[in-house]
Computed example of a mutant assay.
Amino acid sequence: MAAPLQLTRTHRVLIAVVVFGAVIIAGIGFAGSYAAVRELALKKGFGDFSYVFPIGIDAGICVLLALDLLLTWIRIPFPLLRQTAWLLTAATIAFNGAAAWPDPLGVGMHGVIPILFVVAVEAARHAIGRIADITADKHMEGVRLTRWLLSPIPTFLLWRRMKLWELRSYDQVIKLEQERLVYQARLRSRYGRAWRRKAPVEALMPLRLAKYGVPLADTAPAGLAAAGIEPTLIPPAPQQPVLESADAAAGSRAAGA
C-alpha cells in the first residue's frame, strides 16, 4: 500500500487560497442568481415559496457536490450525485437566462459564474480522485499526448492493454512494448518477412501471451530457444568504462613519472 501523500506548507496555502476563491465564486453566483430565480418563481405563481426556492436549489447543489467529493475521497464514488448537481446547475443557468431573455448578452453573463464554479469543482474532484488513487496504490498513469499524436494506432493498442490488464505504470508499459517489438524483430531477422508463418508455434506463443498481460521476460527465453535464437530478449547495454580506464591509466603513468 502506498504511503499517504504528504502536503507541504506551500501546498496547504495554495489549497486554502483555491478553496477561498471557490467559496467566493459560489457566493457571487448564488447571490446573483437569487433575485432572478425568485422573480421568475413569483411570475410562475410560487407565491411565498419563491423566497426559499432559489436557496433550496443552491443549497442542494452545494450539498450534492460536497458529498460527491467526500465519497470520491474515500473511494466509494456515486456518479448520480455529481450528475444531479450539474443538472441543478444547468437548471439554475436556464432560470437566470430566462430572466434575461431575449437579450443574448444578458443570458451569457448569467452563465459565466456557474461555469467557473463547475470548472473549479471538477478540478477539485479530479485532484481528490488522483490523491485517493495514489494513497490506495490504485493510480493508473496516462499515455503521453505526444505518443498519441505521433503513433495513434499502436498507441491505442498499447493503451488498451494498459487498461485491460491494469498496468498502472506508463514506464512499465513502454518497457513491455519495447520487449515485444525487439522479440518480433529477432523473429523477423531469423525467418524473414514471413516470420509469422515460418516461426514455430512455441516461438509465437510468447507474443500471444503478451496480449493477455504476461511479461515477455517470463516467456521469451523458451520461445527464442524454440526458434533457435540465443535466448536474450534485449541485449545488455554496451560497456563504457574503456575511456575511463584509459584516463585512469594515463593518470597513473603521469603520477609515476
Rank of each mutant, 00 (worst) to 15 (best):
8 T>D: 09
19 V>L: 04
19 V>R: 04
29 G>T: 14
30 F>C: 03
31 A>T: 14
33 S>K: 00
33 S>D: 07
41 A>N: 08
42 L>C: 06
44 K>T: 14
45 G>M: 06
45 G>Q: 04
49 F>I: 08
49 F>N: 11
51 Y>D: 10
58 D>V: 09
59 A>V: 14
65 L>N: 01
66 A>M: 10
71 L>P: 02
77 P>R: 03
94 A>S: 04
103 D>I: 05
110 H>C: 09
114 P>L: 04
138 K>I: 07
142 G>T: 08
143 V>H: 01
146 T>F: 14
148 W>A: 04
149 L>E: 03
149 L>M: 09
149 L>D: 06
154 P>Q: 02
155 T>R: 01
156 F>Q: 01
158 L>N: 07
160 R>E: 14
161 R>V: 05
169 S>A: 07
171 D>H: 09
175 K>I: 07
177 E>M: 05
180 R>D: 02
180 R>A: 06
181 L>Y: 09
183 Y>H: 00
184 Q>Y: 00
186 R>C: 03
188 R>N: 08
205 M>P: 05
216 L>W: 00
219 T>N: 00
222 A>G: 06
223 G>A: 00
224 L>C: 03
230 E>N: 11
233 L>R: 02
236 P>V: 04
240 Q>T: 15
242 V>S: 10
244 E>R: 14
244 E>D: 15
248 A>K: 12
254 A>C: 12
